[in-house]
Design a protein around this nucleic acid. Structure first.
Lengths: 136, 136
DNA sequence: CCGCATCCGGCTTGATACTG
DNA sequence: CAGTATCAAGCCGGATGCGG
């Protein structure tokens, strides 16, 4: 694997570089929530219950500076503010999809060597279905 | 999207859950470095130049507790210690591959995405543009 | 050298309150 | 609704030390 140079620094992997460019506890989650469509501050807060106003504000600001999110002011009374993904963050979506999937699979402690055919997996679980597993 | 329950807590996405289970600045990078084969402490330190002994030690310990990495003591004089991925972390590899790829692709795009308040700064060659040639 | 442990300072994040 | 302000807690970096 060759090294990578970015901003006059050398990195031994794209992951290290990404750590430099996009470090922040909530950034992946925010981007993930914006995949379908732009959202407002309050929508994001509702979709990410454990984030605080402060962190949402800070990380959105950084995401904007880093070019991953665009802040769109819609004139009106009251004016509304949309946060929208840029082209740059589109490239992250495959990775985030894979991370999302991995995170969801952590719930069922299935041994990974039990292969599951993806065609057989029904689409989303109904909301009650998880409580079944959680009665430990 | 349905909610997920894990350790008596509710999450609205697998990414949030993952943040709870696997938070740490260096964990993805460490796992990524262990994909091919088990490595020793010093090998990891060599592959991740910007990590300190302290952080490598801490994050390895947490990764072990969280079940993503196994610590293998090889008897001998001196005894050697290998760090090896568990089955659990195999599921992360697709995501890490995608993140690695995204990180590497960031180089080709114009690097400093930060807003620079400058009509006055001329466009010519920035230092970063050499990286284009350095990659060859 | 190897694999940590300890201490300290600084940066990141959390909790709560408050504003236009 | 879309954030700030302030303070406290926790995570991280750097230096140092230590037994093997």
């Amino acid at each position: 694997m060759s090294d990578i140079k970015y901003n006059n620094k050398w990195f031994k992997s794209g992951l290290e570089l990404l750590n430099e460019v996009l470090y922040g506890k909530w950034k992946f989650i925010i981007i993930w929530n914006l995949t379908d469509k732009p959202l407002r501050f309050s929508d994001l807060r509702k979709n990410i219950p454990s984030i605080t106003d402060r962190m949402l504000s800070l990380q959105l600001k950084e995401l904007e500076e880093e070019g991953f999110v665009e802040r769109i002011v819609l004139e009106g009374n009251p004016p509304k503010i949309d946060y929208k993904l840029t082209e740059k963050s589109q490239g992250l979506l495959p990775a985030l999809t894979a991370l999302e999937s991995f995170g969801r699979n952590l719930v069922q402690n299935k041994p990974p060597y039990k292969k599951v055919l993806s065609q057989e997996i029904p689409l989303p679980l109904s909301e009650d279905q998880e409580s079944f597993f959680d009665m430990l």
